[in-house]
Amino acid sequence: MSKIITNNLSLWYGGFQALKKINLAFQEKRITSIIGPSGCGKSTLLRVFNRMNDLIDGVRIEGEVLIDSADILDGDFSDLVKLRKKVGMVFQRPNPFPLSVYENIIFGLKVHHLVEKSEREQIVRESLESVMLWNDLKDKLHRNALGLSLEQKQRLCIARAIAVEPDILLMDEPCSALDPQATLKIEGLMQRLKNDYTIVIVTHNMQQAARASDDAGFMLLGELIEFDRTVEMFTAPKDKRTEDYITGRYG
């Protein structure tokens, strides 16, 4: 089933068109990767799905983005808070708050008053377990999260996003600050998480897209050039430009 559908999605930063009539469907409980060179609009596309682009002055969006059949760009759709609870985001640089591990995880819940105090322990545990950090951190819950390793920080950020119980996880180059080993571990984690979440990952690391995703889209200069099963795209690309890019002949 399609979780996210875009219809003729275009986006302008002032006079510059960053997305050109994107038509895409992201399937539920799969990992979809968006690849492409820097500046191709892949991060911009990702940030449409939780409307983070709203923060930037001069952004204009046309077209439709349906998440669970509701158009999130519709003028009537004003509940950004609800949208962003449903669509979690993991950023390029691991960015925990300078607070304890525990406080980082319950950060969203605490503000939303979603749970009783007594349930918080349980949620912290579950969130940490689902990113496989519980065993490492169960005795360090009240240490400052800034003392963790980069990989642990990124896992913690994923746990923090998960704690709000989203359906969709947007990952914006989540491994680009990590070393190869940590990258593999995060990819392993993604495989586990796709049982429960629809994951969209933006990456400029083609090997990562090939290894970790089920579906893949290739973007160039704001256009979606090709979208297919990852296996198909990486073994038999239909478009010449896709082939050039994934074989490293691009540019």
Binding site: N95, F107, G108, V111, H112
Partner: peptide, 27 residues
């Protein structure tokens, strides 16, 4: 206060005011 704090906070579903109140002011 790093811009990221605001981004993360909004991405967790906090409103702009909640973001200021909980993710910016304390720091």
């Amino acid at each position: 206060v790093p811009y990221q704090f605001r981004e993360v906070s909004l991405s967790l579903g906090l409103s702009r005011w909640q973001t200021i109140r909980h993710s910016v002011l304390p720091f």
